[in-house]
Nucleic acid binder design. Structure first.
Length: 709
DNA sequence: TTGGTTCTCATTTTT
DNA sequence: TGAGAACCAA
């Protein structure tokens, strides 16, 4: 076990050990398994190993996330699991849909049970290998838990019928496979003789079991982690995995890495002082290699808007005065909702930026639909996918017909039932044509899943089912957006094909397991372009920036809680770790921002400064109060007054004062000129000719269009 | 069945 | 604020 403090070269250790194993000890690359927490980390690790060794041996090492590694094993071993090799991987959004349907069938008073909560409870149970029956037994008089257990039972039964696995199943079923099946177990224990796990502090119980069983024979495991950076408890991560490592793997040796190569001493001292307030930790002494450094700035702003304006001004200032690259800056926030204002203010100030993390691409209806089509073609047993696209595009199958169909389906595969119903001409004459055509379409597509490359398949599919036509017939901003998403989906397929050349089923896995997908706006910014990064504190893990801004350090937001009473001690410690992760991303400059008013959940709220700010030592800190919007007259921040332009955001739709000829800037399309305008208020529709992207019709409301000042 | 509207309600992080 | 459900009219 390597206990590696922030910035101590964690990943480097893993990469170099792998190189050492192969080069010095002559270990065959395919006997090494390296598990990371995110796909991005896996890619990075692969790259770094490639640069140390050669392409071919690097390619033979099994590197991936727990989920992707398990998916690969399960596909290979599907026979032992009574699964088709084409089993579906259920994404989170679909997990919700499935749970909701299960809740509906149970006649549970819906107000008592938030599907979101049920999902987490089910997930927790799964990760502890608890079956629905066990859960029901142990629920006792806990009514909510009882309901959850019954939902769980239906949910799980339906997954099995559909030959579908959710994220938790991927791990849990792999563990079961290895436990129940000596031959398979032997094979994988042999195969993965050397196991390396990154971010061990974020593993959950099932993942621990997986590592434990795989390593049982050769006992060659190296885990790397930092208990102070454990920030995924809500997802089942158990910090005890790292705290109990020496007990769980007798004879283990622990190495501590306590030299920090990233941050200045000032930054580190500040972060460390805050962490002193946590109790459950191993205790490391991180020492900065870079002594001294500028003081950490703690800035208080009047409102969230002022915070955003301050950011833009500060970025511009540092860019001009200190000749910083835009990519030197990381702006961190606790919740995704916070990024909106910041994006807007960067837009107005013409600062190139990029939002790292979930883009919502996968939440788009179009993406879910197309994904469901592909999955049904690959796995016609997947009734959930069938149900999703049954009436998309419209085929005249509404609620009543759907009910009827579901009734007849029972626990058989819906698509098969549909086939036979068409055969028996159960549907009324005026509908049967379209329904039969749908069935034929799926069957046709099913035939060519193996023989057609991914982009061709996707295009053919869109064509065959008339998925595009439904949007082409109208010319509204919404339909334009839909068409764009469809295009984006096609490009994703092309991109996948170009990079991997893999088959359709691999594309499905890729879509399900790579939901991260970073966004590049405005325009088409390439991956490593020079942009400011906007990201959540969680997404910041593993990254570093010369200058870091942590925003929204306020009670309720960071630490994040709904009501003080449900903030447990453990929750609070995790929140502190989350902030700690953020602070330790900074190499040279660290800004801690808080606002006194913030627009939250549709309301203006007063907020108090985060308690974490009170835990910081004064000697490495400079506190500045800039409340009252007069950022321009403000005392010295990092730049003495400004050659930075004043950034003042115009309210999105307050000024419905767009006129023909106005120069505007759009989140996605960049700069352009207004050429037409219809309607008033947030409903107004506007036509803009963009300099690079051409003419677009936009809905003024959600389009995020700003007048350039 | 579909399209449109209004209403309400909850707001964390993501493989 | 924005998503989803519930409701209503054609």
């Amino acid at each position: 076990m390597v206990l590696a403090g922030a910035g101590s070269g964690k990943t480097r250790v893993i990469v170099h050990r792998i190189a050492h194993l192969i080069r010095e000890l002559g270990v065959k690359p395919d006997r090494i398994l390296a598990v990371t927490f995110t796909n991005k980390a896996a890619r990075e690790m692969k790259e770094r190993i490639t640069s140390l060794l050669d392409d071919t041996s690097a390619a033979r090492i099994a590197i991936g996330t727990f989920h992707s590694v398990c998916a690969r094993i399960l596909r290979r071993e599907h026979r032992s699991l009574k699964l088709t090799s084409n089993f579906t991987i259920v994404t989170e959004s679909e997990q919700h849909a499935r749970v909701k349907r299960a809740v509906d069938t149970l006649n549970i008073p819906p107000d008592r049970m938030a599907p979101r909560q049920i999902v987490t409870r089910i997930s927790n149970a799964k990760n502890r290998f608890q079956e629905p029956e066990k859960m029901l037994e142990s629920a006792g008089f806990d009514l909510m838990q009882k309901w959850t257990a019954r939902v769980y039972e239906i949910y799980q039964a339906q997954l099995e019928q559909d030959h579908a696995l959710d994220f938790d199943d991927l791990i849990v079923k792999t563990v079961r496979l290895l436990e129940d099946n000596p031959l398979v177990r032997d094979a994988y224990q042999e195969r993965y003789r050397y196991i390396l796990v990154d971010e061990y502090q974020d593993t959950n119980h099932a993942q621990y079991r997986l590592i434990s069983i795989l390593s049982r024979r050769y006992r060659n495991v190296m885990v790397v982690g930092d208990d102070d950076q454990s920030i995924y408890r809500w997802r089942g991560a158990e910090i005890s995995n790292i705290l109990n490592f020496e007990r769980d793997f007798p004879g283990a040796r622990t190495v501590k890495l306590e030299q920090n190569y990233r941050s200045t001493q000032a930054i580190l001292t500040t972060a460390a002082a805050m962490m002193e307030n946590n109790r459950r930790r191993t205790g490391k002494k991180l020492v900065a290699v870079r002594s001294g450094g500028e003081k950490v700035m703690q800035v208080t702003l009047g409102s969230d808007r002022e915070e955003a304006e301050f950011l833009a001004k500060e970025l511009t200032g540092l860019h001009a005065r200190e000749h910083r690259e835009w990519s030197d800056f990381g702006i961190l926030f606790r919740t995704n909702a916070q990024s909106r204002l910041i994006e807007e203010s960067c837009l107005v100030a013409q600062i190139p930026f990029r939002v790292i993390g979930n883009t919502g691409f996968f939440n788009r209806k179009e993406v879910k639909d197309l994904f469901a089509y592909i999955r049904l073609a690959l796995n016609p047993l997947d009734s959930a996918s069938c149900l999703r696209i049954l009436n998309t595009p419209r085929r005249g199958i509404g609620a009543a017909t759907r009910e009827m169909l579901m009734e007849k389906t029972g626990d058989r595969p819906m698509f098969r039932v549909l086939e036979s119903l068409v055969e028996d001409r159960v549907f009324p004459g005026h509908k049967i044509g379209r329904i039969a055509d749908f069935v034929r379409g799926v069957l046709e597509m099913e035939k060519i899943t193996r023989t057609t490359d991914v982009p061709a398949f996707v295009r053919l599919m869109i064509e065959r089912f008339g998925y595009r036509e439904q949007f082409e017939t109208e010319d509204t901003p919404e339909s334009t957006a839909s068409l764009e998403i469809i295009e984006e989906f096609v490009s994703a397929a092309e991109e996948f094909h170009r990079r991997t050349g893999d088959t359709l089923d691999k594309f499905c896995d890729y879509l399900a397991l790579n939901q991260e997908q970073s966004s590049d706006r405005p325009g088409d910014v390439e991956e490593d372009q020079n942009t400011v990064s906007l990201l959540t504190l969680h997404n910041a893990k593993g990254l570093e920036f010369p200058v870091v801004f942590i925003t929204g350090l306020e009670e309720g937001l960071c630490p994040c809680y709904r009501s003080l009473s449900d903030l447990t001690e453990d929750d609070l410690e995790e929140e502190r770790r989350i902030v700690y992760v953020g602070m330790t991303r900074a190499m040279q400059k660290l800004f801690l921002l808080s606002a006194q008013r913030r627009f939250r959940a549709g309301k203006q709220t007063d907020s108090k400064p985060s308690r974490f700010l009170m835990e910081l030592p004064e000697k490495t800190l400079e506190r500045i109060n800039l409340q009252g919007a007069r950022t321009r007259r403000a005392r010295p921040v990092s730049f003495r007054d400004s050659d930075a332009p004043a950034v003042k955001m115009s309210h999105p739709f307050s000024g419905n004062d767009f006129r023909r000829g106005d120069r505007v800037v759009h989140k996605r399309w960049g700069t352009g000129t207004v050429i037409d305008l219809k309607g008033r208020g947030p409903e107004a529709k506007i036509t803009v000719s963009f300099d690079r992207a051409g003419r677009k019709k936009l809905l003024l409301g959600p389009s995020r269009l700003f007048k350039m000042t």
